[in-house]
Amino acid sequence: MGFEKFGRFGYVSQTKINTLLSYLEKGQIAATKCKKCRRTYFPPRADCLDCRHSTIEWVVLDGKSSLITFTQVFFAPPAFQPETPYLLGLAQLTNGLRVFAPISPAVDKEQLNPGVELNLKVAKGSRNNLYYWLE
């Protein structure tokens, strides 16, 4: 299984950053860092758009984040229909980078507002799939 293991339903199988999966398996979420100019990327990238170098290292994120916005999806694409309604959010990590992720169904929707502090944690699906969500 390639990168389609990523997400609740993955679309892309081959990427330059499949290593993310091995971090998720260890319960960690990692970003990439350009070895030359030190710019950090999340979601991970294999190629630096600033200096155009492609040698990277991985750095583990603490997952602390602040919610920017969210929605609750009622009308979903076929692969996601069994889980409706579900929450999706955009949050800012402590390093200033942003993450688009599901919000754990354990989170009370009424408590959600831009600015709320959440944690990005590893999540596991029923098909051995791996991803992250905000909780």
Binding site: G7, R8, F9, Y11, V12, P43, P78, L88, F100, P102
Partner: peptide, 22 residues
Amino acid sequence: QELMGRAGDVMWESPFGTTMPA
């Protein structure tokens, strides 16, 4: 609906069940 699910970045956002209205 299936196409709509791939309206966003197909590697980092669509795998979470995005839609155009979302």
